[in-house]
Every structure is written in C-alpha cells, then in structure tokens.
Design a protein around this nucleic acid. Structure first.
Length: 608
RNA sequence: GGGGACGUAGCUCAAUUGGUUAGAGUACCGGACUGUCGAUCCGGUGGUUGCGGGUUCGAGUCCCGUCGUCCUCGCCA
C-alpha cells in the first residue's frame, strides 16, 4: 500500500511517552524482526535511532501478513499510532539509556515496502564481528551501523565547531590547489600525469604549506582550511595515504599567539563534542626535557615511569655494556617499574619484553629486581645484580627504588636509548595498568631542534621543514661555520600532543631572505636547487612578507581520539586498506592502453 | 624492503601426532508460537579448507611458491 514517505512525521529516534496517541509516519530500515505469527515486532532504524513497530491485533490482517515477509535491511515506510508498550513490556534497554524510544512502540496500520534487500553479507549492528576487509568491501552497509554513524556525526561536529571558531576569530577559509608541483623533500608524492605536457607531472599536495605562506604575503592575515593531504608512504593504524588537516596560518604573530589560538580551537571542539573543559593553558615541555624524561618527543603524560640518567654511577661499575656505551659517548638510562608482590613482571613477561625490544633493534635489556635483605636494607637480586657490585646502594638511592621494583637499564647512544626505553615505558604503563582511562593529557612540546643529522644521506636535514624559523638566540649558531654545533639550534616549532598521540604541529616561518638562504646553505641546497624547488615561494618572500607562522592538526586523529576509535579507518568514510587499496571500488586499477597513450606513459613491470 | 599473526559454510570460529563422510554458533529456508527486544523451540539447505605446486597409502593439518587482510620496524621534511 503506497505511503507518502516524503511526509515523514518523525524520525526513528525521537518518539517518547509524550507522543502516545499520535498518528505517525516513519521510514527506515528493518534492523531486526521478531515474528510471533499473530504478532510481529520490527526494529525500525534510521540515522537518528531505533523505534519498535508492532503488528498485532489492531493491524489489518493483510498488513500483518506483509510484515511477516519483512527481512533485515529492507527499506520500509509505516503509518501507525504511538502507544505505550504496557507495564512489564518496556524495553530493558530503555532503563539503561541505550534505547530512548524503548518505552513506546508504533502500532502499525499501514506498511509499504519501499525496497527489498538480500541478506547482508554481515550483521549490520554494533555487535558485528565481521572482519574489516569484508566490511570495507560493503562499506555502504558498514556505514549503516549506529556506532560508525556516530563517529561521522562527531566528525561533522568537529569540522563545524572549528569553522565557527575560526570564523569568529577573523580567519578566512581559502582553498589551495590539489594539482601542484612536486617537492622532492619529505614524503613521496602521488603524481598526476599531464596530458597537455607530455612527460611532466603534477603532484598531489602533502600539505598546503607553501600556499598558505603565499596567502600571508598576500595579506590575508588569518587563513584556515580543512583540507585533504596526500602522502605516498606505507600505512599504519593511524596513517592513511589521504588524510585531512585543519591547516591555519597567521601574520604578525609569535609562537605564543598561534598556540593560544590553537588551544582555543581544540578547547572549543572538546567542549562541543564531549562537554569537557580542557585546563588551560596547556602545559609546555621542551623537546630536550621530553626526551630526557620520557625518551620521546610525544610523551604520554598520563603516567610516570620517567627515565633516569644513571651514566655517572653506571660508569663506576665493571659491567662491560655500560662501560662500552659510556666510552663511546653514549649514556646509561634506567626505568623503575613498581610491581608490588611481583605478580605482573614475571620472568616470562620480562623475557617477552626483552624479545619485543629486540624486535625494534635493541641489543639487550639488562634488568634487576629490588628486594630487602635480612636487615631490611634494599639490595638487588637476579639479572645483572652481581655486575652492579658496590654501586648498587647509591644506584637504588638515586632511583628512589622500593622493594618489589624492577629496574631496567639501557646503555648506548642517547637517541637509541631514548627510543627503546620510550617503548618499554609505554608497554610497562599498559602492563602495570598505570594509564588512567578517561583522562585527557594535553601537552605542547616546544623548542624542537631546527636540524638533525641524516646519517644515511650524510647531511643535515630539517626536523620540521626548511621554512621553520630558528630561535633568535640561536641565529649565531646558524651563521657559525662550526657545523658540529648546528644540531644545537632550536627552532620556533611546536607540537600538540594528547595522551602520547601527536595531534598536530607547526612553527613560526622564516620571513627574512638572508636567514632562509643560510638555512638552505646549511641543508646543502644551493641557490639553483632552491630556485628550482621553491622558487615561487622565495620570489614571493622578496616582496614584503609579514612575519608569520601557523599550524596543522590531523583532523582524523582528533576525531579518532574523540570517538575512541581504534583505527583511523573508523573515522574515514571510505578508507584504504593497509596496502593502500580500496576493497569497495577496487582502486587502484589498471587503465587502458589508450588512456596511457594519451598521457604519453609506458609502464614497466616490477622486476622480481 | 624486514618481522609477526591470520586465511576452513554468507559471517565468526573449531577440527587431537597427518587418519572415517570437515563440525558449531549465527545468517538463510520451512514449521510452531499474541509481548518480543541480539526472541524462543523443531527441522533443513549450505564447503574448490584463499590459489598453485610438492611430500605421503592418506593433507584443512607438513614443505615450497603465490595472493589477500591486520599489526609492526624502516619510511612518513
């Protein structure tokens, strides 16, 4: 029986006890049907929620029979009357808050099947256990699930909140090109062949970095954009080849101004989505201190387990790995893990951790346990205890160790020691359940080094990017010919970290030509190369550029945090698999010889 | 490019040292059922064990190759 589906009176999430007695017209999908022959229940689902339909005594016989034919995911429209379910029949999920419509039901008088559906390849509900590949192949069905829909409603709210916030602060949303010039620095580019220019290619932008600086030269003063970025690198759970950035740039500012503006934006988002007020200002930590204390430039500060430099005391031991590390200019650092009762850090667990560390390149992981002797004095036992000898007491004192603690040591070059202990710290935090849930620990990491030595390429390279301004106080180092000190130059770069995840970062840019020239020189980029790669920016920077700086947030990661999603794929509507393919469309795919010929392209099969 | 886990019914999984006709739950189909709500009960259909090769009297199981998915290191200015 045809029904005017275009005149829905309500959605499937809004009917309550107050609507009892009203005649309503609903449309949606059959989420579930329970057939009792003389009475049929259907859970009708749309993006707003779920409402129970009842086909029973008040339903015309022919409509009841039609209802018994209904199957999952059919699209239907019904007319009926809102009724209380009756005492004892109210949904248990109404009382838990899971099903706000659970007190009422719609007693159906008329039904129209708008379209039928074969049985779906997997259960369309938040209970589904289907693997991701099958879900991605039928992503349009996967996206019917309430949990995923919630993620995208949050994503929308985040974007809307950000646009409103920046609009209110005088920012202009401006677009930048997707077909642009390849920049060999940084990540691999996705290339797009030019039909009009045989043998030449556009590149999809890794970020709108250069263009937003041009906007500053143009005088737009405050630019913002929610923009897609592309990087042809290997994927991870938190990394997609195309991802979305909230990108902004401001003129006549210093780092403080950009960070304050960014804090306000993030605070607005957390308030809008979670009704959570971020304590501000967000704490700051220098890069140096972050590495010293946590071994990583994006520490999870929800728990302690900080790293201790024990080089001085380690040097007094006869333990060969310690001595070798120190003689080679390295350090010995330690991490102390409390394990009252010794229940968690068993021999097996410890061996597992050692193996795990070995997996990321660590040579070994000496440790020892702290116990008390007969006199109640602290001493070390097992592991490398005997190698610590007489140094043990001062070591335990320096580490404020307590009975039951396990102490882990890592000797070696500073950078590797940091890397391995940072990993160990995170794992210990999980194992010992030291990471409080439901806590949001924001952190600015500032004063990044401007340059780092690239051992493979045997040259200095930018930590952030070549347009990042050095600290005014470190300009002298930059212009010094003593290249051994270039690693000490601090930059005006900043990263925002949340619970150990990097949400975004930015910097104040160089706006003085001679500083930019010097940075290129230090990076080993000569004038010709600079002109070839970034000529248009350098030209622009000749014409009265304002001092400027900005920042970019990974929008997907922010939404991931807000939704609690385990993977970026759960907050991107049509994501790629880990090998960069799309099971839904089959992309990437072969193209015809004709298409290739038109683009003057010949492909070379990969060699075995 | 390296390391690891996995691939068996539409879906999620099981199958003893290599041993009879590869099972279960769910979905699906049929039946019963007027207060269910991840309905229940009864019955039934459903398999190229990812693909290719090898070892063996015999392979889901062992070996080689290959494809795919996920995690991870490298990589991601």
């Amino acid at each position: 029986m045809p029904l005017p589906y275009h005149q829905r009176t309500h959605n499937c999430g809004e009917l309550r006890a107050q609507h009892i007695g009203q005649q309503v017209l609903l449309a949606g999908w059959v989420a579930n049907h329970r057939d009792h022959k003389g009475m049929v229940f259907v859970d009708l689902r749309d993006r707003y929620g779920m409402t129970q339909l009842r086909f029973g005594d008040e339903t015309p016989r022919v409509v009841l029979e039609e209802a018994r034919r209904l199957r999952s995911e059919w699209c239907i429209c019904v007319r009926g009357t809102v009724a209380h379910r009756g005492p004892g029949n109210v949904s248990p999920r109404f009382f838990t808050g899971e099903l706000p419509t659970g007190e009422i039901e719609v007693v159906v008088q008329e039904l129209e099947v708008l379209s039928e559906s074969p049985p779906p390849p997997f259960d369309i509900s938040d209970y589904t256990t289907a693997h991701e590949d099958i879900r991605l192949e039928h992503r349009y069905l996967d996206l019917r699930r309430p949990g995923l829909q919630r993620n995208f409603l949050i994503r929308h709210r985040v974007a809307k909140t950000l646009r409103d916030y920046f609009d209110a602060h005088g920012f202009v949303e401006l677009e930048t090109p997707f077909l642009t010039k390849s920049t060999p620095e940084g990540a691999r580019d996705f290339l797009v062949p030019s039909r009009l220019h045989p043998g030449k290619f556009f590149a999809l932008p890794q970020s709108p970095q250069l263009f937003k600086q041009l906007f500053m030269v143009s005088g737009f003063d405050r630019y913002v954009q929610i923009v897609r970025c592309f990087r042809d690198e290997d994927l991870r759970a938190d990394r997609q080849p195309e991802f979305t950035q909230l990108d902004l740039e401001m003129s006549f500012v210093q780092a403080e101004n950009v960070m304050a503006m960014a804090e306000g934006a993030i605070a607005a988002v957390f308030a809008a989505v979670l009704n959570y007020e971020i304590p501000r200002p967000i704490p700051r930590l220098s890069y140096r201190e972050a590495l010293d204390r946590y071994g990583i430039d994006r520490p999870d500060t929800r728990f302690g387990l900080e790293l201790h430099d024990v080089s001085a005391l380690a040097g007094q031991t006869e333990f060969a790995p310690f001595r070798q590390a120190l003689e080679g200019g390295g350090v010995v650092k330690a991490i102390v893990a409390p394990d009252p009762g010794g229940k968690v850090l068993t021999r097996k667990t410890i061996d597992g951790l050692v193996e795990e560390l070995r997996g990321i390149g660590a040579p070994g992981l000496p440790y020892t346990k702290v116990v008390t002797d007969e006199q109640g004095q602290l001493k070390v036992e097992t592991g490398i205890a005997k190698h610590l000898g007489s140094v043990a007491p001062s070591l335990l004192d320096a580490l404020s160790a307590r009975p039951g603690d396990v102490v882990w040591f890592m000797p070696g070059p500073y950078a590797s020691v940091c890397k391995y202990l940072a990993h160990l710290r995170q794992r210990l935090g999980q194992l010992l359940q030291l990471i409080p849930q439901g806590q949001w620990n924001f952190l600015w990491v500032i004063d990044f080094p401007l340059l780092e030595w690239d051992e493979q390429e045997r040259r200095w390279s930018s930590v952030h990017h070549p347009f990042t301004a050095p600290h005014d106080a470190d300009l002298e180092l930059l212009f010094s010919d003593d290249s051994s000190r270039w690693g000490q130059i601090r930059s005006k770069a900043y990263d925002l970290v949340l619970n150990g995840i990097e949400l975004g970062g930015g910097s104040i840019r160089i706006h003085r030509a001679e500083v930019q020239r010097r940075v290129f020189h230090v990076l080993g980029i000569n004038d010709d190369e600079a002109q070839q790669k970034f000529g248009f920016l350098l030209q622009a920077l000749r014409y009265g550029p304002p001092p400027h700086g900005g920042l970019a947030f990974g929008l997907d990661r922010i939404v991931m945090m807000l939704t609690g999603a385990a993977s970026l794929r759960d907050v991107i509507a049509f994501p790629k698999t880990q090998r960069g393919t799309c099971p839904l469309t089959g992309a990437p795919s072969s193209v015809t010889e004709k298409q290739l010929a038109e683009l003057f392209i010949r492909t070379i099969p990969p060699s075995k």
